[in-house]
Amino acid sequence: MIRATIAAALLLTGALAHAQEAPKGDYAEVNGMRMYYEVSGQGEPLVVLHGAYMNIPAMGQIIPMLAQTHTVYAVELQGHGRTNDIDRPITYPNLADDVAAFMDAVELEKADVFGYSMGSAAALQLAIRHPQKVDQLVAASVSYDMAGAQPEYHAMIPTMTPEMFVGTPMEDEWKKLAPNAEAFRPFVERLIALEHEPMAWQEDVKALKHPVLIITGDADVVTLEHSVAMFRLLGGGAMGDLGNPLPASRLAVLPATSHTAVIGQANLLHAFIEPFLKGEAPKGMFDN
């Protein structure tokens, strides 16, 4: 499934190549890693963070679509894509600190940030740990507490072993870009350990001052109740008419959408993300 997703993403990205200049790839020295990134488009800066076991191509068509109106900095995180792995746990605080250091390395003082899955949790931690680096945050398939994951996912975590990934098409895809093709097993071990990391960020989320767009599938790995609870922590969920101003944060639910189907719906994602980043909202009948 992952292999097919990556292949489809590559095809979609290629379909838009004729309409835009090719992204410019480079490396930044970040916390002992050579972090690979690509810059594309023009406009206000937007940092894009992929999900676990993914890379820039696997994010698909949404990157070139966002690059039509933004300068997109797409990053490959520790051990992913062309960024080398290091002997350090993969944790959300570590990933967030890496992104902050990357922004310093490329002299990016502040930016909007869009993260998906693992990348959305890293983006959330970036806003918590380095609030001055983040302007607006788009978090797709995000959780702020492991209690918000679906029961089926909770049940699966204790059963995860490297053997579920080693020797599979996922390893073949990973090796195509990896600086060290022999390092897949320790990389997988780090990502499995990430699933066991404590996650209870309710008070940190409640204290955020950034506008946040939460995007979730209606059959995502995160429960709908958890996404709504996060929206309420950010000041959302009240009636917007009768003189009540809309909150700065927003919630979007993609219909008939599982976790892995979220990132493939670029048109829907773009339709939610672009107005949010521009501060645009639909007008109600009582609005001037």
Rank of each mutant, 00 (worst) to 15 (best):
P179E: 09
V113H: 12
L12I: 00
K133E: 01
T168Y: 08
H270F: 12
L77T: 11
S117V: 07
I263V: 15
D112F: 01
R3N: 11
Y36H: 15
V188E: 05
T257A: 08
H154K: 05
Q61C: 10
A178V: 10
S258Q: 04
A58N: 10
I214D: 07
H196I: 02
F184S: 09
L208D: 14
P255N: 13
T71G: 01
A123D: 05
T13R: 15
K176E: 14
T13M: 15
E182Q: 10
F276V: 06
D204I: 02
I63H: 00
M35K: 07
T161V: 09
V205C: 09
I56F: 03
V48A: 08
I157S: 02
G167E: 04
A155D: 14
V262Q: 07
P158E: 13
E76S: 03
E76M: 09
T69D: 15
P198I: 04
M59G: 11
P45W: 00
E152L: 03
G25N: 03
A22I: 02
V166N: 12
L194E: 11
K175S: 15
G217K: 07
L224G: 11
W201N: 10
G240A: 04
L277R: 07
P247Q: 05
E107F: 01
I273D: 04
T257Q: 06
E195Q: 15
D287R: 13
A17R: 09
E197W: 04
M156E: 12
G25V: 10
I56T: 06
A15Q: 08
A256S: 09
P247D: 02
A200I: 00
R250P: 00
F286Y: 01
G243Q: 07
E173C: 14
L95N: 08
L10I: 11
D85H: 06
G217Q: 12
M33A: 12
P255H: 12
H70Q: 12
P23N: 13
I157N: 11
P131D: 11
R3G: 03
G60P: 05
M156P: 01
A147I: 15
L234F: 01
A261M: 11
V228R: 14
A28S: 05
V72R: 00
L95I: 09
S258N: 15
L177H: 11
A123C: 09
A248V: 04
I215S: 00
E21H: 14
L49K: 06
H154A: 12
R129Y: 12
L10C: 11
V166R: 07
S117R: 08
M59N: 12
W174K: 06
